[in-house]
Every structure is written in C-alpha cells, then in structure tokens.
Simulated assay, not measured.
Amino acid sequence: MAVQLNHTVVHATDKRASADFLAGILGLRAGAPFGPFVPVDLSNDVTLDFYENTELTLTPSHFAFLVPEEDFDGMIDRLEAAGVTYYADPHHGQPGRVNTLFGGRGAYFADPDGHNMEIMTRPYVRP
C-alpha cells in the first residue's frame, strides 16, 4: 500500500468559523461535526479537521492547495468579497498580487487564526 496523507488537524479558536471560511474561499462546504472536529473534505480524499483550541496559543501553520486553473479567479474574487488581502509571496509583502511560479498562478492569505493559506494552480517543481 502506498503511503498517503488521510487527514490533518487544524487548530482554531472557532472551529466552525475557520472551517466555513476556508471552505467558502475554496468553493467547498464544511461538513457536519465529527466528534470534536469540523471537517473540510478535499477532492483527493484528504480531510482538514478543524479543532477548537482555546487553551493554547496557536502557532500558525502553512497549508497549500493545488486548485484548478479555472477555479482560481473565483477564489480570488471570494477573498476580495470577504475583505481578505491576498499576496503573491508567503511573507505577505506583495498585497493584491498573484505569482506566476512554474507557469501557474498562486496567492497566499491568512485564515482567521493567522494560518498561512496558499492556493496554486501548478505544483512546485523540485530538482
């Protein structure tokens, strides 16, 4: 059996709000609660399980999503409609711009808890 990522936990101060935010930007729907989690299912059978964590200081993480080229503009439109600034770079130094790395397009944005989210239309090429 090949090893595959099945799910990962995303810590949030408000699991429903964070799951709904990301799902909305990606054009998906957050699922019904599953135990202490609110899941967002991705098309490659990976689930992001949002978990409410109010006892610890959250450490922002990075999550990158390979998205279809034809859906990218809609995601940018939804970020703009939500008043969320997107950036061409992971350090958030180029606001309102997208990058064109590896012949695709990409952008970074923060979720409600400061996780650095990335949408990209081409995977990064490794040497």
Rank of each mutant, 00 (worst) to 15 (best):
A17V: 03
V67F: 08
F102W: 15
L22K: 09
R105G: 08
F37N: 14
A19F: 07
L101N: 14
E80L: 07
V40L: 13
A2T: 15
E55M: 10
V98W: 04
D113T: 05
A30M: 13
I25Y: 06
N99V: 10
F102T: 12
S43K: 10
H115V: 07
L58E: 11
A12Q: 09
A110T: 14
G114E: 14
F102N: 07
G106Y: 08
G96K: 04
N116I: 13
A82E: 06
A64Q: 06
T47D: 09
R97E: 06
G83M: 05
T85W: 08
S61C: 12
E69W: 00
A17E: 13
V38P: 13
V10D: 00
A82T: 06
A88R: 05
L58G: 13
F72C: 03
D89S: 09
S61E: 15
F72R: 11
L26N: 01
M117W: 11
T85G: 00
N116R: 04
L42M: 02
H91C: 04
D89V: 02
N99L: 10
N44M: 04
R122F: 05
S18E: 02
D45A: 06
L58D: 12
V46E: 09
D89C: 07
D111Y: 08
T85M: 06
M120V: 15
L22G: 01
G103R: 07
P127H: 10
Y124T: 13
D71P: 00
N44K: 06
T121M: 04
R105M: 02
P123F: 12
P60M: 11
H62W: 12
V46R: 03
G24P: 01
H11G: 11
A110Q: 03
L22T: 04
A81E: 04
A23K: 02
R16A: 12
V40R: 13
I119T: 11
D73N: 05
D73P: 00
G35Y: 14
G83A: 00
F63C: 02
L28S: 03
T59M: 04
H92M: 06
Y87G: 02
G114T: 15
V84R: 03
T54K: 02
V3M: 15
Y108A: 06
D89Y: 08
E52C: 13
P33W: 06
H91S: 14
S18T: 08
V40D: 03
G31R: 11
E80S: 05
L5D: 12
Y108E: 04
N44P: 00
A64I: 13
P123I: 12
F21K: 09
G35V: 15
F72G: 06
L56E: 03
V38Q: 07
G35W: 15
T59W: 00
E80M: 01
T59P: 01
V9D: 01
V9T: 14
V98I: 11
T54I: 14
G31I: 15
N99Q: 09
D77V: 02
P112H: 01
A88W: 09
R97I: 00
G96E: 01
G93Q: 15
D41V: 09
A81S: 09
M120G: 05
F72D: 00
G31P: 03
L5Y: 11
A110E: 14
T100L: 07
L66M: 06
L56C: 10
L26T: 03
G27F: 04
